[in-house]
Design a protein around this nucleic acid. Structure first.
Lengths: 118, 118
DNA sequence: CAGTATCCTCTAAGATACTG
DNA sequence: CAGTATCTTAGAGGATACTG
């Protein structure tokens, strides 16, 4: 597990909750994973990978591990061969969804801005 | 202006608004700056710096520039000597505040978790 | 199917010093 | 007061190949 630690080092994060949250959520793919998972009861590893265009195995794995460590997602291994693993968001994570809705809507307008400029 | 570009490269961002938003907001200090500014009508450069513990000149300057480019903050230069510059958030940016409220509340619980563990 | 193991690159972040 | 100019570096992100 390398290049896998949190993006932002502590200290100010212990005072500012917004910074603290970014420390946990700020990876390139983390919010996208949460957002994607939030639309399903659960998703398998490769399903999730197919949903998130451009993500690689390592990045998906690393991101999932970080999110799991922070109790934002549940990992359920059905202990079968071939493997069957399902991911879902936790109740803790649900609290963030209203924020993600807003960010998603806001992001849409940014894509329009971007298109209009190019 | 180096090391100042957006954190996340395009492509998937053009499809996923959440990724797009992160591309603009995902810097280490950007949300903190917006969050801080949102509590005031406007703040001067050094006031802002004093509010955000740990931020350096370059990081504040760079972050403010990026945010201004994306029309998230207004920069008002009063053209005086000594300089007098005020920063405030734009109407565009206001739309994000409800999300920041949620993230802030969520972040508080994470700080508690962090404390309980150490 | 669901991941690891290696290796590498790039750049965001920062330290330090200086300025109109 | 409100920044800029330079230089450096840690580590996030990724390419590629492999595995139980």
């Amino acid at each position: 597990m390398k290049g896998n630690a949190n993006i932002i080092r502590p200290y100010y994060s212990e005072k500012c909750p917004v910074i603290k949250a970014l420390e946990i959520l700020g990876g390139k793919w983390r919010l996208a994973i949460i957002w994607e998972l939030s639309h399903y009861k659960s998703l398998r590893y490769n399903e999730l990978k197919r949903h998130i265009d451009g993500i690689t195995n390592i990045m998906l794995t690393r991101s999932l591990q970080v999110l799991e460590q922070h109790h934002l997602i549940n990992r359920t291994d059905y202990g079968q061969i071939p493997p069957h693993v399902e991911y879902s968001i936790t109740a803790d994570c649900q609290a963030l969804l209203p924020a993600l809705e807003i960010i998603n809507e806001w992001g849409k307008t940014r894509i329009e801005v971007h298109r209009a400029q190019s």
